[in-house]
Amino acid sequence: MAPSLSTEVCPSLTIGAPTMLASGILGISADVFARVAEAGAGAVVTKSVSREPRDGYQNPTVTGVRGGGWLNAVGLSNPGAGSMAGMLAAAAGGRRGAPVIVSLVGSAGPEFEQMAGLFEEECGGAVAAYELNLSCPHVARVGLEVGDDPALVREVVRATKGATGAPVIAKVGLGSARYMDTVEAALAAGADAITAINTVRAMSIDVAAMRPVLSNGIGGLSGPPIRPIAVRCVYEIALQHGAPVIGCGGVSCWEDAVEFMLAGASAVQVGSAVAGAGWVGVFSEINAGVRRYMEDNGFSGVREVVGLAVQRR
């Protein structure tokens, strides 16, 4: 029998393929989500939504990095939780495709509680899980600034858990505190899984213009350059907590996906790689490669691969 691509992300969330669309990538349209699902993604994560709409920063907001990878500071531009919930509700009727995970961003518990409550009311059945953005590196008072404060992390995880029965995933990144403190706080407060990692705070300066390229100056680095960092984080989380982990950072081919699985990830998210030549075709390419790898190595399912390297050194 051919090995199965389906994977249990956490006990209440099983998806048909181990590749997800990462938050903030093609992330504001239900029609596009359906297309990405058809292209093979096992789940799609929405752009992080805040209580109120945000315009984000002016361009340049995205730039390629000499030597590889991408740098962005879009400034969490998003249509707001109300608009996103309305769109998902309207799309829910004729739903095709993969589970939708809603990414939430905010500064304090009540905001998260209110937003999750709003989604539950408007389109609860259409939301497979919530991912809390505790890791955006370029906007004040949200993202990493929340993630860096374990007490606040506990507060927002508890608040979200209180508003929904769906799984709650904490997305962590590398801030100025120990990221493992964020992981521990989230798990202690009841988070069902951890996504690791977000972009890494970084910048580019144009030598001819003699000024930072991004309008915000500082942004977040994504793509292949951060993959080894992300693999290390997934490995450490799996080793220390044995908690469900979703790997994110620089996945662009099946080897990258398998590397994360061996480190302990039950699924991976794909972001910057969609900018590559294969575009959204990258999902089916990765899935096919993972399946071949399982076949070649005699595995019948993803679960048998997850964390294999954690016990070996």
Partner: peptide, 20 residues
């Protein structure tokens, strides 16, 4: 348009990503 390369999604129209 923000990225121009089919990544950010800001340019969507229906199911189309206009930049790509």
């Amino acid at each position: 348009m923000k990225c121009g390369v089919g990544m950010c999604g800001s340019c969507c129209a229906g199911a189309d990503i206009v930049c790509r």
